[in-house]
Design a binder for these strands. Sequence first.
DNA 1: ATCCCGAGGG
DNA 2: CCCTCTGGAT
Length: 217
Amino acid sequence: MRTQLPPMPADEVLTILSPLWPDHRSALNYGSCFQLLVAVVLSAQCTDEQVNRVTPALFAIYPDAQALAGARLSDVERLVHSTGFYHAKARNIIASAQQIVHSYGGAVPEAMEALLSLPGVGRKTANLVRSVCFGLPGIIVDTHVLRIARRLGIAPTDDPAKSERMIAASLPQEQWTRFSNVLNRHAKYVCTARKPHCAECPLAMNCPSTQPFDQHR
DNA sequence: ATCCCGAGGG
DNA sequence: CCCTCTGGAT
C-alpha cells in the first residue's frame, strides 16, 4: 500500500537541510584537542549534556594527556561513572593519554591510523577529532547519521563502516564534514530514533521511510 | 521495559 | 557477523 520512493541524492538532501542547521559546532564542551578527544570517547551511548556534566571536574584535575596518563583508574572511574560504560571508558582514556604522551609527544595525532590505534577511539571518534581539530574531511557516522542515511535510502545499511563508505561515495570530499554535521543535527532533533517528527521535516515528501500519519522504525 | 551521539572482542 | 559493556532518559 505504501508507495516506495527512490532514495534522495545526498547532495540534494544537504542543499535542503543545510540552511536549517547553520550552527554545526559540537555540543560538547572542551578546551583543547585532547579534551575534545576525551569528551567524544565519553559520549558513547550517552548524551552530550551528560558528558558536559562530568568533564568540568575531570578536566580540572586532568587537563591534558600528561596529567591523565598518571591518573589512578578508580579516580577516573568515579569521575566518569554517570556517562555509562565507565570501566572501559576510564581505562581507555587513561591508556590513550599514556599512548599520546609516549608515542606522539603529548599531542593528539591527526593521522587516521594513529588515532585508531588509541584505545577507545574508533572511526566515528577519529573522524570527528580530525574534522574539528585539523579541518580534515571525513564522514562522521554516529548513530544519528547512520539512522537518517538508512531511512533516506542514501546508505541502506546498519553497518557504520559501510554507511561511511556509501555516503563518501555519494558526495564530493569538500561536503563530507558539512553533511555529517547537518545530518547529525537533523537526525537528532527531527528524524529522531523513537518518534520521528515527519510532519516538520522538509524531506518527508521525498523520503522513502515517511509513512502516512508518521510512525515507523 | 526499552532505547541510546561506540568500540572491542569472540 | 554477533555479543558485551553501563547509566540515564523516555
